[in-house]
Design a protein around this nucleic acid. Sequence first.
DNA 1: GTAACGCGTAAATGATGGCTTACGCGACCA
DNA 2: TGGTCGCGTAAGCCATCATTTACGCGTTAC
Lengths: 101, 101
Amino acid sequence: MAYATNCWAVLADPTRRTIFERLIEHPSAVSELARGLPVSRPAVSQHLKVLKDAGLVIDRPAGKQRIYQVDPEGLAAFRAELDRFWSKTLATYKTVVEQPT
Amino acid sequence: MAYATNCWAVLADPTRRTIFERLIEHPSAVSELARGLPVSRPAVSQHLKVLKDAGLVIDRPAGKQRIYQVDPEGLAAFRAELDRFWSKTLATYKTVVEQPT
DNA sequence: GTAACGCGTAAATGATGGCTTACGCGACCA
DNA sequence: TGGTCGCGTAAGCCATCATTTACGCGTTAC
């Protein structure tokens, strides 16, 4: 389902990444998200569609509204993708990258 | 120096990510990279410029050639950026995301 | 029923970005 | 001193994409 490889591009857009981070904090409806962003509501809808196609969020109807929330499964897939990336890197740059943050 | 915030967009492009991963394995000249990629040599040069501006790679002249390699410092900065992202996520989705890969 | 609300989607637009070709510059070699 | 090689960069093209406005559909409230 979740094409974790594409998550790089999906999360590259700042607006979309902000939306995703807000959904991490708590599930939200579309208008609620749009209210805190400098873009229109349809723009938020389209970003949510991209996030949904990537398997990063799921949605459920709630009366007039539609609640979006992070999909733990897709999130885990992306985490795995990033882990592969870093494990390759660590083999060469272990000492530097593992420094305390 | 390194704007780690932009690394999301920098590594979003598959070609650029491939270049970066090859540089992780070993430093390379431009033509050497281009030889193993489906794009032209100038395209590789432009990707390398983006990676360099982001602080992810450094270059040094070597006769006629120009050797590019990963900048450990920029890499650590990006690692820190991703760590911030995940630490936020883990607060909510700890159990799911931390499953063994 | 009818009005208002929340949402998704189509269409149009402007901007961004990756790619190629063409060119010019410095470094090596005969 | 020519000629070749490796590279960066400018110019232009084309695709992608983020965004807005306009519209239509389902849901709730009166």
